[in-house]
Amino acid sequence: MNQVLAPELDFTDYKSDVTPVWCPGCGDYAVLSAILKALAALRLPREDVALISGIGCSSRIAAYTSVYGFHGIHGRALPIAQGLKLARPELTVLCAGGDGDGFSIGGNHFLHACRRNLDLTYIVMDNAVYGMTKGQASPTSAADWSESKLTPEGPGVAPLQPLDLALTAGASHVARCFSGKVQALTQTIAEAIRHPGFSFIQVISPCVTYRPEMREYKTLVHESFTEPCTDRREARRRLIDDDGFSLGTLFKSVEPSYKPLRHEPESLDALERQFSL
């Protein structure tokens, strides 16, 4: 993360004047609030932060902050974020989006972003549904979730396990939060930003419109990952008993990041001499 401190700002100073398109009661409001509060708590200068997102309800989040943002195309937020971070390593780069954006159309980028382990923070607002296209199953929907016209008998395939994927692919900070617990979410986001590597946070963020049963998730979540593991195998063992509602930071370990090739500087003339006979 960026080391320059901003003057103390209120978290609302990190908020833009654009009104969210989200439905009343959407979990994403709380995620937005937690991101703003984490940025304020870390006193990050607005101009040195960029929030990159893809397409979907939650990906609209970029325009709701007053930092630099990029609301890109479906599934490609992570490549944009990584390109920016590689080109401008001094910036604090956050990436955010939904479960369809991150795990379905963008699934390949998720794996490779975990492997590359650049110092950025990826927040997935997981509501197990495509909300913007009006309620289709996503990669984290249950196999028998049958409320979609597109898959009236359910998607029929087992849901992806995002924490397991992140761990296996090489993410160096892996956590799960619930949008209904804003304070813990804010703290986890701040820790993730401070963590020098690829931080992944799965945020269970209910869609009250297409998944009204998610209103009851507040009774299902439980703090189970009380202390992060620093051993990847141990973290995976913990996931064996995970019911999908365990909250906390599962894994945290400082590990090597991708580093670009470096060479002694040469002038353009020197480069061109390689062609001269």
Partner: peptide, 29 residues
């Protein structure tokens, strides 16, 4: 590129490639 202070990164596919350019160029490079 590494000799003139730039960098090349090998990525997972062409989708990543074009979108990484967008990110880097958005950053001014």
């Amino acid at each position: 590129l590494a000799k003139v202070g730039g960098q090349l990164v090998q990525v997972e596919d062409e989708l990543a490639s074009i979108n990484m350019l967008v990110g880097a160029s958005f950053g001014g490079v």
